[in-house]
Design a protein around this nucleic acid. Structure first.
Lengths: 204, 204
DNA sequence: AGACGTGTGTGGTCTGACCACCAAGTTTTT
DNA sequence: AAAAACTTGGTGGTCAGACCACACACGTCT
């Protein structure tokens, strides 16, 4: 059988193990030696798998204590990748373009799906929060889109985007209100053009 | 000194080494044993670093040959994370919805970006291919969108979608022609409604 | 010229051995 | 009794050496 590399197999097993035992972020996973024994592989192979996952930011190891599941939205991976990919301008523009398109999709969904309660709570948040980050705003929009898969993809892209951007742009606060207003009116056309205005995108 | 982990140091050294020697994608990097010697570390540590980079998709190893720099234009991160994220999301409708939205985005991009040569070759393909799969058609559209990241995401979604669908639907061949025609005319409105018709989506 | 070993180098894996560190329990000191 | 010091077992971190599977290039044989 196994022509596949052992460490990849371990990554897979680990994922299943986490799912099966319902381990959450912060929980401890079995020690390297125990994994090695339970999976019938050498400790080196276990370590290769763990180190890879660590570099990805999916787990965290503390010497003398153990290995723990980490907050999946770790920025580490993104940061790391960006140092490798930084040079590629085309890749950058791909990220921008994709993020914008996804956000517009979210807006389209939100226009259809957001109910009054959500709109109200967002309105409250907007009026009460003096200073907010662009991500905070769109995080709510994305939630309003009620598509978990979409949320995930957007979340990754957002982190990636932020890692690429040297100086985070700050948009005009008024434009957020306009965007929200159009959204609350459930007017797709208006919402999208408000978005383009916010992002300084040509409407083309 | 060094409380920092060796394998992380190696990752850093490796990056510098690649930059200094101007290594490009496809080039071979020194063997594990040589790196171990040059950096004065154990081969295990070198391997931990390499395995991590491999899982990230930054390098590729071929047994008996060596380790090579990979085309990391390819945003492997999405691929990877998806295996961790998609596992528990059973919401089929999310997948459908997301796939459709992405395809529409691709169409919007394609309307703007596809040049005459691509349109011509696609027209040729359409007329010459008696029977084709839905994926084949959209694979070309996605390429026309000229966004590698988008291609990746769509590719993953497509596979996931196909895995969810028991009996692959076969759409009307005529509808593909209509869609292509609208695309060739570079008419976004028409293209999108042709897509909705193809997929039997309400225009809402 | 072609087919066939064979040698060398490469990644892939396992084992055993240390070290550094931490936490918890145990003993000693105050 | 309370506080400090020590012991112990478990954990990750690292290394060295061994063996395997594989790929390629070289030389040999036909």
């Amino acid at each position: 059988m196994a022509n596949s590399k052992v460490y990849l197999e371990i990554v897979k097993q680990l994922r299943e193990m986490i799912a099966a035992d319902g381990l959450m972020q912060g929980d401890k996973i079995p020690s390297e030696r125990e994994l090695s024994e339970r999976l019938n592989v050498g400790r080196s192979s276990v370590r290769e798998a763990l180190r890879a996952l660590e570099l990805l930011g999916l787990i965290e190891t503390r010497r003398g204590e153990g290995t723990f599941i980490r907050d999946f939205h770790g920025h580490q991976l993104v940061q790391l990748l960006s140092t490798f990919i930084l040079q590629d301008e085309k890749a950058k523009s791909d990220v921008y373009e994709t993020k914008y398109l996804l956000e517009m999709d979210c807006l389209r969904l939100a226009v259809k799906k957001m109910d009054d309660a959500m709109i109200y709570s967002m309105e409250k948040w907007l009026s009460e929060t003096a200073q907010f980050h662009d991500d905070d705003f769109f995080c709510q929009i994305v939630q309003g889109a009620e598509n978990h898969l979409f949320s995930r993809i957007w979340g990754i892209l957002k982190d990636y985007y932020n890692a690429l951007i040297a100086n985070p742009v700050h948009y005009d606060r008024k434009d957020y209100f306009l965007l929200f207003k159009a959204l609350a009116e459930k007017n797709e056309q208006k919402t999208l053009s408000a978005y383009c205005k916010l992002r300084n995108l040509s409407i083309d």
